[in-house]
Nucleic acid binder design. Structure first.
Length: 576
RNA sequence: CUUCGAGUAGCUCAGUGGAUAGAGCACCGGGUUGCGAACCCGGAGAUCGCUGGUUCGAGUCCAGCCUUGAAGACCA
């Protein structure tokens, strides 16, 4: 519970108190935004259930609760409706006061919940290759969650759990040695081509394959020369990632890098510890933790392998080492794993083992923030026309190119440099928003036309709403009184103020549910309410206190859109 | 076979056990001597996969089935 409640928290607390006063102490109020305008602004749904549990007449209980409900200065109308709803209409003065308070607050009056240390594991590309579309969702969902949690005052520790270890790096390093010996025209700028040629060598030449395997052994054995070459390869690959991160505008840096290799030294200790605790046992030569928790109807316990027959370790072991590190070293109270939903079973098992082994204390929250796969229009995994993976850098370039063409249509008179800048914000914003605005658990049909339509519920619609306000503020010039009182007369003004008052609840919901699309829905509604206000209520043409008040509503709306889009990693523009 | 997702308008998607299931796109019809029309307003369009159950109330919870995707001992 926040020190200062959000609007929804406040209403729930007040109705809950009234329920208690009416003889139902533990009955939840269940306050929600009203389903229809004629039901007011909020509706309390909890009375019917409370009455049922106590064999009372629900409408009678509702009138008792309403009589005891203290919303002085907050609501000016309460109605008992239907089988026992309490419909609440907030007072316009109260909405105006909330808007006024938000205007003078650096955080838009969004209350901060109790502070936590939150580890977010996201992006995690495989450094053997260039980033492809499969890395997009984790990267932008994780980035949005990081921004939201930081905004709420939490300490966020990003962990980029990159793939930088394993047999393929032996192959790549061996190929690097060979290419340098051959005279050095190796082109690491084309990482994908380099990987392809190395793989070709590996498949075609047994001698090379043997050298590659030997290189892995030497790398893992701590050979300094091999290690230096491996490190060089990683640096170059990481630079590629950083270019993509810069284009996307995500916050990840090298300081957040914590790849698989970082946990290498911990792995033997994990296995021996699990053995000592009687959890890991030998089975067919491998070290396995059997989990009764995952027994199906067939009665077989799931096998969680932590060490292979040949003594090698798996990602199962690495992930245990990582969770142990996040708990004991990083002191995380909450750990989020923004990883493909296909790994759901793996995470459920890993979390179970981590808890039983004591690597993650009971009070530490472990959450798999899963998401669906990107599909092509044919419903199959998204590929290029020729069947290859789509490089992320190319996808982003295309988005920007398409946006640039659109800006040229809409606003051909702007200088070219500015059109390029707008195209970046709009193109990247469209890609991110198309992803973030969908429930992350469902599979995601990738479609250029849908994604880059720039119409309806898209980033450009929100960006456009922002530039409209920016235009008004520009024209108002110095005549804006930042202390002017907000007065809500027109229905469109009131509806806009109500929507503005819900910002905190939207942000809190995103942090709680790890669902960025809840913020998208909110911002789309806010932009829509602004557009209606814009049609109905002239700002610059109005006069005196009305004009000053409307300008204040504009200022708060633009600040909220800028802040909200910023939390999604989407930039706003003064002109577009 | 087991487990976990998903199935809502022609398409892409919302929908915290509540009142008449909502948007956008596409389609049809309106709106600019108004602050940016990348906009606004209206219309049409849905047996919420199927069948039962739980209850004052089910798209939402439970069971079974259908379709689809994924995972399920030595890749990650």
């Amino acid at each position: 519970m926040s020190a200062e409640p959000t609007l929804l928290e406040l209403l729930n607390a007040r109705v809950g108190a009234a329920l208690a006063a009416a003889g139902c102490p533990d009955a939840p109020a269940i306050v929600q935004p009203a389903g229809r305008p004629e039901f007011g602004d909020y509706q309390a749904n909890g009375i019917m259930a409370a009455a049922k549990a106590r064999k009372m007449n629900p409408r009678q209980l509702a009138s008792e609760v309403a009589a005891k409900l203290d919303l002085a200065g907050i609501a000016d109308k309460l109605e008992i409706a239907g089988p026992g709803f309490i419909n609440i209409t907030l007072s316009s003065d109260y909405l105006a006061a909330r808007a006024q308070a938000a205007l003078t607050s650096a955080t838009l009056a969004v209350p901060q919940p109790p502070q936590q240390t939150v580890v977010i594991d996201y992006s995690a590309p495989n450094l053997a290759k260039e980033m492809h579309v499969g890395h997009l969702r984790s990267t932008i969902i994780g980035d949005a969650l990081a921004r939201v949690l930081r905004f709420l005052g939490h300490t966020v520790i990003a962990q980029n759990h990159v793939g930088d270890w394993g047999t393929q790096f032996g192959m790549l390093t061996a190929y690097l040695i060979e290419a340098e010996q051959a005279g050095g025209e190796l082109d690491l700028n084309d990482l994908e081509g380099f990987y392809r040629r190395a793989k070709q060598r590996f498949d075609d030449d047994d001698a090379f394959a043997d050298r590659a395997r030997d290189t892995v052994v030497r790398l893992q054995g701590g050979d300094a020369q091999i290690h230096a070459l491996w490190q060089r390869f990683l640096d170059i690959s990481m630079s590629h990632c950083e270019e993509v991160y810069a284009t996307l505008g995500v916050l990840l840096t090298r300081a957040d890098l914590k790849g698989e290799s970082a946990y290498n030294a911990m792995l033997p200790g994990i296995v021996s510890d699990l053995q000592a605790k009687g959890m890991a046992v030998e089975s067919d030569g491998a070290q396995v933790v059997f989990l009764d928790e995952f027994k199906g109807k067939d009665g077989e316990a799931a096998a969680y392998i932590v060490q292979k027959q040949d003594g090698g370790y798996l990602y199962a072991t690495t992930d245990l080492a990582a969770v142990r590190h996040r708990a004991s070293e990083l002191k995380a109270q909450r750990a989020l794993y923004v990883v493909d939903a296909r790994q759901s079973l793996h995470f459920q098992q890993m979390f179970t083992v981590a808890r039983k082994a004591g690597y993650a204390p009971a009070e530490m929250s472990l959450e798999h923030v899963g998401f669906g796969v990107m599909l092509g229009e044919d419903g199959k995994p998204f590929k290029t026309r020729s069947g290859g993976t789509v490089k992320l850098a190319e996808l982003l370039d295309e988005a920007i190119t398409r946006a640039f063409a659109l800006v040229g249509e809409k606003n051909p008179d702007l200088p070219e440099a500015q059109r390029h800048e707008i195209a970046r914000a709009v193109g990247i914003g469209a890609v991110k928003y198309a992803d973030l605005s969908k429930n992350r658990m469902s599979d995601y049909v990738f479609n250029w036309d849908t994604m880059l339509a720039f119409e309806g519920n898209t980033a450009p619609y929100l960006q456009y709403a922002y530039t409209r306000i920016a235009g008004i503020e520009r024209r108002a010039e110095g005549a804006i009184d930042a202390n002017a009182p907000i007065v809500l007369h027109d229905e469109a003004e009131r509806t806009l103020a109500l929507e503005l008052a819900r910002f905190a609840d939207a942000v809190h919901a995103v942090a709680r549910e790890t669902q960025p699309h809840l913020l998208c829905i909110y911002l789309y509604q806010l932009a829509g309410q602004f557009m209606r206000f814009y049609e109905a209520c002239p700002v610059l043409k109005s006069e005196g206190t009305v004009r000053a008040s409307r300008l204040q509503l504009c200022r708060l709306t633009s600040a909220t859109l800028r802040s909200g889009l910023g939390l999604l990693g989407i930039t706003t523009l003064e002109t577009m």
